[in-house]
Design a protein around this nucleic acid. Structure first.
Length: 543
RNA sequence: GCCCCCAUAGCUCAAUUGGAAGAGCAACGGAUUUCUAAUCCGUAGGUUACAGGUUCGAUCCCUGUUGGGGGUACCA
């Protein structure tokens, strides 16, 4: 459509300035609008409305098969699709079914890294938000034609894991009746008591006197990772690949980083530690790359990990992090640029803070002291679909209050039921049609048999690929969510009109109208189902 | 101090990213012998936090101010 407009405008003048295709939320204006009149106005020294009139005239004369009515209003050109075009799209929806809305496959590999929680405790609700947004954005990108790998980076090495091993040992001692106290930085969650019991069942009191810290660490980390995987799967999260920090270290990838920076003259000693001269390649401050105790800080293996991802041949790396890692972006990104990778090939999506509200008060969360609500517990109380929809509803970079009381209630504030109900209702109509032995099939739709509401419904379905595109571009699930609401609302509103006027019912007496309506609803159902698939929620046959 | 995020209807949020401010909930009024009322229709609700700037046009971009949240380690 944009090319078409450019062509039409080029009959007036050249070159044509950049202009926009506008998909207004309100279908009453048009299927597609454009601001080209405004853009050309200053160039041609005429008022936008006149220019728009002229472009519209040219457009009409081109007689393109997709273009129906063309109007000019307040400087905008408003274009309505032709009947033929809408009928073609209908056929496309039916033919493509679950593929409808997908964009052509691109040879562009994206690595989407998300969750990546330390295996030192269960996932909490903030992880849940990151996990679900990561999953949904991955779905959208796949739909938009990208080749996406979902990846989890396991921080199974370093201080936190040390502390985990020590904490488990203390709990183990306590289980065995030995007096022992958790330290200041210990993991205080009760889940370690359960793990200590498991440990004792497996090993008895064999390690009480001579603790094998390596065993404690590995036992705890392996068990906790297993729990995390189970929780993720409970939330419907798909993961393709698990990368391990420990493995990178075993392969000396961290040492290679030090070697690399040293060889480039970017390392210097200070206060007994080794520093990267990162300010000379774009960072805000120099960074420690070997601590004075001889160990590498987290960032070194993180550098190594991201280089490793590039070496595995991804065109774009997307990381989803919590806001507490914000300062880490510049750190990693300036290193990657120094290592020769374009800055646009590394994107970080910061998912903002997620507060949990219960009884009108915030529930404070901390992994170290035992009070927090786990994602697992949340999923016990609240259906997966609700949780997924809730977390997808708000833009990733905004703060989110998760009100437990509201989510637990099957109230109207859970719009997921609204969209699913639309799907179930359509299903119910098909069931009824089957009982009455009413036939409806085929990939063709006679537009002339649709009334205005039905035509508008079809026009809305045509927009689905646009929403996939914008959602993928913005790495944001919310456009898909609002679109799903739009489709459901349009259907519900249309459906209800039969209350007043029986001839407006889908299963009315007019055979032709009936067939056309059933066919249309088939397409509505396909689009709803495709939206649900992206969001990872179920499409219930009945509710 | 410096950096990041946020501020739109009473509440929770949209607005296809610089193009025509819109939903849901709550409130009020109405619709139920149905194709599933987990629904629909209507009413009301706005100086888009404030002040400037750029633009034909700003909720969106820039500058400043206010308020809320987060970060600013030889932790991860």
């Amino acid at each position: 459509m944009k090319d078409l407009l450019r062509k039409a405008a080029s009959r007036l003048t050249e070159p044509i300035p950049e202009f926009n295709i506008i998909y207004n939320t309100d279908l009453k204006f048009a299927d597609v609008s454009t601001d080209i009149g405004f853009k050309l106005a200053s160039l041609l020294k005429d008022n936008p409305n006149n220019i728009a009139q002229q472009v519209a005239q040219e457009l009409k004369q081109m007689n393109h098969q997709a273009v129906g009515r063309v109007e000019v209003l307040k400087g905008y050109i408003n274009i309505f699709y032709s009947q033929n075009y809408l009928e073609d799209i209908y056929s496309k929806i039916i033919k493509e079914d679950s593929i409808y809305g997908s964009h052509p496959k691109k040879k562009f590999r994206i690595n989407m890294e998300f969750i990546s929680a330390n295996p030192t405790g269960p996932l909490h609700i903030a992880h849940g938000r990151q996990a679900i947004i990561g999953d949904v954005v991955s779905n959208v990108l796949t739909k938009a034609g990208y080749d996406v790998q979902r990846e989890y980076y396991i921080n199974d090495s370093g201080n936190q894991i040390e502390m985990l091993g020590k904490s488990l040992y203390v709990r183990y001692q306590q289980i065995c009746g030995v007096n022992a106290e958790l330290g200041e930085n210990s993991y205080k969650g009760e889940y370690l008591i359960d793990l200590a019991k498991e440990f004792k069942e497996q090993y008895g009191d064999k390690y009480l006197k001579e603790p094998d810290l390596k065993l404690f660490k590995e036992f705890a980390a392996a068990k906790l990772l297993e729990q995390i995987k189970q929780t993720a799967s409970k939330a419907g999260i798909k993961m393709d690949y698990y990368a391990s920090q420990k493995q990178l270290e075993n392969e000396s990838k961290d040492k290679e980083i030090i070697g690399f920076l040293s060889s480039k003259g970017m390392a210097f000693e200070k206060d007994g530690a080794l520093w990267a001269k990162s300010t000379s390649y774009g960072d805000d401050q120099d960074r420690v790359i070997r601590k004075s105790d001889g160990l590498f800080p987290y960032r070194v293996s993180d550098y190594a990990y991201h280089l490793d991802k590039f070496k595995r041949d991804f065109d774009l790396l997307i990381d989803i992090w919590g806001p507490d890692h914000h300062s880490h972006i510049k750190d990693v990104s300036s290193f990657l640029q120094f290592a020769g990778y374009d800055k646009d090939r590394f994107k970080v999506l910061i998912i903002q803070h997620c507060r949990v509200i219960s009884g009108g008060k915030e529930v404070k969360m901390s992994k170290r002291n035992a009070t927090f609500i786990t994602l697992d517990e949340l999923l016990d109380d609240i259906p997966r679909d609700v949780v997924r929809y809730f977390f997808s509803m708000r833009k990733p970079e905004t703060h989110l209050d998760f009100d437990l009381d509201l989510a637990i209630k099957k109230s109207m504030e859970n719009p997921v039921y609204y969209v699913q109900y639309a799907y179930a209702r359509i299903n119910s109509i098909f069931k009824k049609a089957k009982e009455l032995d009413i036939k409806h099939s085929g990939e063709d739709l006679d537009f002339a048999r649709l009334n205005q509401d039905e035509r508008d419904l079809l026009r809305l379905l045509v927009r689905f690929p646009n929403f996939v595109e914008i959602s993928a571009k913005e790495l944001d699930p919310t456009p898909i969510v609002s679109y799903t609401m739009d489709v459901a609302r349009s259907f519900q509103s249309y459906y209800q009109k039969a209350d007043k006027d029986r001839s407006l019912a889908v299963l009315c007496d007019d055979v032709n109208a009936r067939e056309a309506r059933l066919k249309l609803l088939k397409a509505v159902q396909i689009v709803l189902k495709n939206c649900f698939d992206i969001l990872g929620i179920s499409a219930p046959d009945k509710m």
